[in-house]
């Protein structure tokens, strides 16, 4: 492995200063970054280890009823926090459907948001990839791309964002708190990741040196707790990224959907919120025909980027499934195989 500097700043300000230099990268638990470094995909000259920064590992309820989750909270700790599970069940389900128990124990909230795509050509330094090397071309375009994007892609890049966690988060209007040289700012999570366009290497709205310090779920996010699900189809029951996933959250009153939230995972370079579908659902009775209509609306702009037309069909069916299950009500406890279509199997 290449030699690099390693610094472990004592404060957020020091961290930002250390990371503002060219070639520097933040290191959280490294479950993504270290793999990329070992493969030669990322070659930072300096790692700024943020894991010991004080105060970023807390989950706190703020006065306005929102929930603030420090960027260093571990995925597993968040997913097993009883109050969190009660209030944001679909988020817990998404977290627990990701990676493996060992990885979740290590992975941080900030790292999960900023994990890179799993496009195999991005990982294979022998391949051309516009993300790794702007202008090099995209080998995925005519390559093995059955799992690539069907929404929001460009000829420059057809990769997807792989996070499960982000999917219900964008549905619930999560906000990212960012600190940089010029102070603190906020960004809706939905605006954090960029679609590839003609600059696939420019993946997020973060400026050099900016640190995610926290994630915030607004008070209203809790209103969906009774009807919220995350469904993830993958090629094995655990320890696999989503082929397609969906988060559905409904506020049902008097037998009608008052408000709906819907987002898809594994379909685009960002967690994909569908306001079109949400609008179709708002005010409607919870029924399958309406779910199908919503699903069509959510995928209306989809087109295959390769051998992946099936994902458009599958995504619609997952939307229908997620909405149906959400309407049935959040289960009393998260199943042993969270977000699996088979979570209803005995022993599953």
């Amino acid at each position: 492995m290449m030699n690099f500097d390693y610094v472990r700043p004592a404060s957020v300000a020091d961290a930002i200063a250390a990371a503002s230099e060219k070639g520097a990268a933040y290191l959280a638990s490294g479950t993504n970054l270290l793999d990329l470094m070992k493969g030669g995909v990322s070659r930072p000259s300096r790692l700024v280890d943020v894991t010991r920064l004080p105060g970023l590992d807390r989950i706190e309820r703020l006065a306005d009823g929102s929930l603030r989750i420090g960027a260093l909270v571990r995925n597993a700790d968040l997913a097993h926090d009883a109050e969190f599970v009660r209030n944001y069940p679909a988020v817990a389900e998404a977290l627990l459907s990701g990676a493996s128990a060992q990885l979740r124990n290590a992975a941080t909230v900030g790292g999960n948001l900023l994990q890179r795509t799993r496009c195999a050509y991005f990982y294979d330094i022998g391949s051309a990839c516009n993300k790794r090397w702007p202008g090099a071309g995209c080998d995925a375009l005519d390559g093995e791309n059955r799992l690539h994007a069907v929404l929001g892609w460009s000829e420059g890049c057809i990769a997807t964002h792989p996070s499960d966690f982000c999917v219900p988060l964008v549905a619930l209007d999560a906000v990212v708190e960012i600190e940089g040289k010029d102070g603190r700012r906020e960004l809706p999570l939905e605006a954090l990741h960029r679609l590839p366009g003609d600059a696939p290497a420019h993946e997020t709205e973060l400026e050099r040196g900016e640190l995610i310090v926290a994630l915030r779920l607004p008070a209203a996010a809790q209103n969906f707790a009774a009807h919220a699900r995350y469904i993830k189809v993958r090629e094995r029951t655990s320890y696999a990224f989503a082929v397609v996933s969906a988060a559905a959250a409904l506020r049902i009153e008097d037998g009608a959907i008052r408000e709906a939230r819907l987002a898809l995972g594994g379909v685009a370079a960002k967690p994909w919120r569908s306001r079109e579908a949400e609008q179709l659902l708002a005010g409607a009775a919870p029924d399958a025909a309406r779910y199908r209509e919503a699903a069509r609306a959510a995928l209306a702009g989809a087109k295959p980027s390769g051998d992946n037309a099936f994902k458009i069909e599958l995504a619609q069916r997952i939307v229908v499934r997620a909405l149906s299950l959400a309407a049935q009500g959040t289960p009393a406890r998260v199943a042993a195989l969270p977000a699996s279509p088979f979570s209803s199997l005995p022993g599953a």
Binding site: S127, E144, S238, S340
Partner: peptide, 28 residues
């Protein structure tokens, strides 16, 4: 599950790791 995915142009194996070369996990 099991399959080595090979790029049909370059002959490189695209899932030469245990995360993407799938074998059943315990849950399977």
């Amino acid at each position: 599950h099991e399959e080595a995915v090979m790029d049909h142009r370059s002959g490189r194996i695209l899932n030469a790791n245990l995360a993407e070369y799938h074998v059943p996990v315990n849950a399977d």
